[in-house]
Design a binder for these strands. Structure first.
Length: 430
DNA sequence: GTCCC
DNA sequence: ATTAATGCGC
DNA sequence: GGGACCGCGCATTAAT
């Protein structure tokens, strides 16, 4: 069905949107009340519009949403300057099936290298293009014998066809150049390990003339967490072996269970996916009594908890990353003072019980798996993120009542997708 | 990089 | 001063 | 040939 959508407009402090189905003009407030309990609205064919005003909205169970204050930033979404015509049919061709396929590892490994290269160069779309090609190849059940054969697959174009021919012939590809071993490149690599310093900021600092980290640490722009991480960059850059992740996890686990055995805790990320090591440990905490409408209680709990960790000396330093999320620098107590354990990074977050498994699923990853799960959810008519799993009305596009989720398996069941063990959710590194 | 207009 | 748009990291 | 290609949250800049 073709529908014409007028540009999303704004008037004073109210955001007005044209409903894509019946062309009615609604204030965002009404739209939010009608469409979703949260501040995201999915427009078929146009993506997701988000409203950034929820901090100033009050959600009252009885009265619905009330605006307590006007906001300075209310809308960011697919704003177009002119009218657009879109097809309401969601056309998403998921080519890849779940699960890795190693038949063509020789090819995907090289493509992965090329993807990495593009990432370092900041070409996000080329990086993605390579990942798409890898995904496509992994879904292909046969061993690829020629570039021409691969060309038939989705996301394989003339350029990758040529590269595949070269890979089949020589085992590698001349486009894989590796990183220049210059001091500047090395500094660049270190800089990008610092929180909130990506490619752009790293380049900015390089252009400022910094030659070494020692000079850089005095830069006035740096925040405490950044300074701390620079100070211990080598130590914190070390990967945490699985054994140690287990000890870290166990320490926090026991401490929580001593407080109250009903606490829920899950170590997510690479640990949960069964990997041998990781740069940090990602821990999600909840409790049946953690209510969605009393997040300040959760924040207070986490604040106290992390402070206790520090008093015990397990946590040496912590940095808030938001009210219910901390970066904790922790060290396993060592009996041998001469051989202390290394400091390790732990991401700690506490969430309402209702969101617990959704958060665990989102934080377990990997990135590619979760994103594709989200896509699949949309196809099946569900909105999935770390705070909600709810059906989307196929006719109106409205997000319905959130579904209760009491386990990770519940999510897969609701989506009618076969449960996938965390260990098999690794797409990028096969 | 590929896809799609 | 307020709102719209963009930058950047994840 | 030429534009689109996640989308969110916070911060900053540009525009009005």
């Amino acid at each position: 069905m073709l529908t014409t959508i007028r540009p999303l407009t704004r008037q004073n402090t109210n955001t007005y949107c044209q409903h894509y189905l019946n062309n009615s003009i609604l204030t965002a407030r009404t739209l939010i009340q009608q469409v979703t309990r949260f501040s995201y609205i999915y427009f078929p064919g146009r993506g997701i519009a988000s409203f950034y005003w929820h901090p100033k909205l009050k959600i009252n169970k009885n009265e619905g949403i009330t605006v307590t204050e006007t906001t300075t930033q209310s809308f960011r979404g697919p704003v177009d300057k002119k009218n657009v015509t879109v097809d309401n049919e969601i056309d998403k061709n998921i080519t890849a099936k779940f699960g890795p396929n190693s038949l063509n590892k020789n090819i995907t490994d090289v493509l992965k290298e090329l993807a990495k290269q593009e990432r370092a160069a900041g070409d996000f779309f080329r990086e993605r293009a390579y990942h798409a090609a890898i995904k496509s190849i992994k879904a292909y059940p046969k061993k690829i014998e020629s570039g021409k054969e691969a060309r038939e697959l989705k996301f394989i174009g003339p350029s990758i066809e040529m590269k595949i021919d070269e890979i089949l012939k020589t085992g590698t590809c001349s486009y894989v150049t590796g990183y220049p071993d210059s001091a500047e490149r090395k500094l660049f690599n270190v800089l990008t390990k610092i929180p909130r310093i990506g490619r752009i900021n790293a380049l900015k600092y390089l252009n400022k003339g910094y030659k070494t980290l020692e000079e850089f640490i005095d830069d006035s722009d740096l925040q405490p967490d950044q300074k701390y991480i620079i100070k211990h960059i080598n130590e914190l850059g070390e990967k945490i072996p699985r054994l140690e992740m287990n000890i870290l996890r166990e320490y926090i686990f026991r401490m929580l269970k001593n407080l109250d055995h009903r606490y829920l805790i899950e170590a997510c990320g690479r640990f949960r996916r069964g990997e041998k090591c990781s740069e940090s440990l990602n821990i999600v905490i909840s409790h049946p009594e953690f209510k969605e409408d009393a997040t300040e209680n959760i924040d207070d709990f986490l604040k106290k908890f992390i402070n206790d960790l520090k008093i015990q000396g397990f946590c040496t330093e912590y940095f808030p990353k938001g009210p219910s999320k901390y970066l904790a620098i922790c060290r396993i107590p060592s009996k041998d003072a001469a051989n202390p354990y290394l400091r390790r990074k732990i991401e700690l977050r506490a969430v309402p019980y209702k969101n617990y498994w959704l958060t665990v699923l989102a934080n377990t990853g990997d990135e590619v798996f979760y994103k594709s799960l989200q896509e699949k959810s949309l196809e099946k008519g569900f909105r999935l993120n770390d705070t909600i799993l709810a059906p989307i009305d196929p006719n109106s596009g409205m997000v319905g009542e959130p579904l209760i989720v009491n386990s990770e398996d519940d999510i897969f069941k609701i989506l009618n997708i076969k449960y996938l063990a965390p260990e098999t959710r690794d797409w990028k590194s096969s």
